[in-house]
Simulated assay, not measured.
Amino acid sequence: MSAYPIAIYGNGLFQDGYPTPPVPYATQAQQLNQGVTTVILWSIHIHDGGDLYLNDTLFVSKGQIQYATDGSSGVNPDYPALVKQLMSGGSVRDLLVSVGAWGTTSDFTAWLGAREQVKANLAVLQAAFGITGVDFDYEGVYGNDAQNMIVTLTLDVGSLGLYATYCPYTADSFWTGCLADVYAQNGQRQIVKWMNLQCYAGGANNSPTQWAQAVQQTPDTGVTDPYAFIVPGYAVEGAQGEGPSSIQQAFAQLAGTGITGGFLWNSSGIFSTEPGGGPTPADYAEAINAGLNASTSARATVDA
């Protein structure tokens, strides 16, 4: 049974390089479906008033998806067909949008200031593309005000029938505090399905098992399997990271610990190196499976 999730951050997916990407968009969708289970559109930036941008491109404004009409403004007009292809008949079964990035705490304060409009815009993506969740890539000041903000926004995500994932690289007590508060304020039901733990760049020294222990030691989070709840991620070639063999070795160190999946940072790194003979998404997905020995050890779906 395959590891779950095998997630990838889709850096400007189906938009990066528009209209002439290094790997054709339809080929990208096909390749992702050869082992990746979860695609996370990165990064959604939220501007004052609640407009959603995919990186620097206006994506959703006032409840309307903005498609390019002149080749420069709005997203790829083929986006609906590409997402349909992505979600049909292959390994991909989850499609999330990720809010934030390093140095973009304004995404979250803008979201807090326009909660109803952001909910309406997320609902448009839910209806149009079938998104299943929202990833929180908050990398800023960690304190009570920030925790209250993240909890409030997580509850908004849950009110849409979506789940959340958190993408931390530091401050484990902050994130476990968010989990406990969400659980308490949501009638003892957890909205956060897993944590995408950054094990590269600023999180290069993170220990997934230590983060699992931090979740395990925090009372009343609603997380039933703390080790499966932690999904470690590593950077790929083309994104200041390593190739499949190194990533397989990293996951081999976690085999048998209860860690059941992993994520890749990021798609544009893979697609930038692939034309020169670099590895495909399937090669990286197989590396995660092989490292965790998932082909011979059945692993249950992560469910917080």
Rank of each mutant, 00 (worst) to 15 (best):
N33M: 03
W211C: 10
T280F: 06
Y227P: 08
H45L: 11
A123M: 03
A214N: 14
T69L: 01
A294M: 09
F14T: 00
D172Q: 09
Y142D: 00
T69H: 07
N76C: 06
P279Q: 05
T69Q: 10
V75Q: 04
T165D: 07
S245C: 09
Q31T: 05
Y163K: 12
A114C: 10
Q85F: 11
A81W: 13
D78A: 15
A128D: 12
S98E: 08
V99W: 04
G17W: 04
Q217D: 13
D135S: 06
G291W: 07
N144H: 01
I46D: 06
N76H: 06
Q117V: 15
V192L: 04
L95H: 05
P21L: 01
V151Y: 07
F251C: 00
G103V: 05
G269L: 13
T109C: 08
Q248W: 12
A164V: 11
T209E: 10
G241W: 06
V39S: 01
A282C: 02
A239M: 15
Q217M: 15
V118K: 11
T296D: 03
G133A: 04
P22F: 07
G143M: 03
T273G: 00
L264S: 05
A164S: 14
V83I: 14
A26E: 00
V182R: 06
S88A: 08
I65H: 02
F174L: 07
N144D: 09
T176Y: 13
T273M: 06
T260N: 13
K62P: 06
S246H: 09
T301H: 10
R115F: 10
G256V: 12
Y169Q: 04
A304L: 09
G276V: 11
Q28D: 02
T260D: 13
A7I: 09
G113A: 12
W265K: 04
